[in-house]
Amino acid sequence: MKTALGRVRGLGSAKSGTDTFWLQRLTGVFNAVFVVITLGIVIALAGRPHAEVIAALRHPLVALPIGILIVSGVIHMRIGMKEIIEDYVHGGPKVLAVVANTFFAVLVGASTLFALLKISFGV
């Protein structure tokens, strides 16, 4: 049994609390750290021959930061784009856009992670 106050505490008028707000901040911190590392990796490897890039991406300390950025990044961008959709798109198209948004985030996340793992465990 919960009291009426206990039930609503921390939930606000949206009835679902501040999970999304918090997740956007949390993934934002992860992105800030791992995007800088990934940027360094990408710059170091840009324009290099395929074999050299593969050899570098195989190293766990190179693949892991990129993998973490991908996971954190697609969660962050899905929340951000949903926010934009909810501001400008209404009715039926909104539902479509929100679904397409999730679809895009999963597609980008899954395909890049798959590519990364394929390289890590051998092409």
Binding site: L57, T112, F114, I119
Partner: peptide, 12 residues
């Protein structure tokens, strides 16, 4: 993100 995705998928 598609730019990073294309680069990684091409490498793989």
């Amino acid at each position: 993100t598609l730019l990073l995705a294309a680069w990684l998928i091409a490498a793989a």
